[in-house]
């Protein structure tokens, strides 16, 4: 079953995500960050606050066992602040089929408590041909 292209533009319910210091410490270790900063790609953890909704969206019909990550982009407006709570808001930016493979692009905005954009994330997944 190809991805349901009618879902292009679909916006998923907001998820809240806290920049939890313990989780940041684990993430720093995972990405080899020796300093005390919040690594910029900690944004991935915030994206994963929403991704289960998309992966589990029966309307979309994504077979996660065939998914590989093709592209990822982040635009940071400012660094993360330890302890802050962000809102993660994802939408399906595009759905394409090419040579039996499905291409799914998800854009996620991470907004702070004042509603200001902190990070814009864009993930493209390939659902490989069965």
């Amino acid at each position: 079953m190809p991805l349901n292209a009618a879902l292009e533009g679909k916006v998923y319910p907001d998820a809240t995500f806290t920049v939890d210091e313990q989780r940041v410490a684990l993430f720093r270790e995972a990405v080899g960050e020796a300093g005390q900063i919040v690594p910029p790609t900690f944004a991935t953890a915030a994206e994963f606050a929403v991704f289960p909704l998309i992966v589990g969206d029966a309307e979309l019909g994504l077979d996660f066992t065939r998914v590989v990550h093709a592209e990822q982009a982040y635009e940071w407006r400012r660094p993360f602040r330890s302890g802050e709570t962000l809102t993660a808001r994802s939408r399906i930016a595009s759905i394409r089929q090419k040579a039996g493979n499905g291409f799914l692009t998800i854009e996620t905005e991470l907004l702070d408590e004042d509603g200001e954009l902190v990070v814009l994330a864009r993930a493209t997944m390939i659902e490989r041909a069965a």
Binding site: I37, P40, Q72, A73, P79
Partner: peptide, 16 residues
């Protein structure tokens, strides 16, 4: 960020 010295200097990273 090690090279730049501060995460605030990294504005965009786009990879394939």
């Amino acid at each position: 960020t090690d090279w730049l010295g501060a995460p605030s200097r990294l504005k965009r990273l786009a990879v394939q």
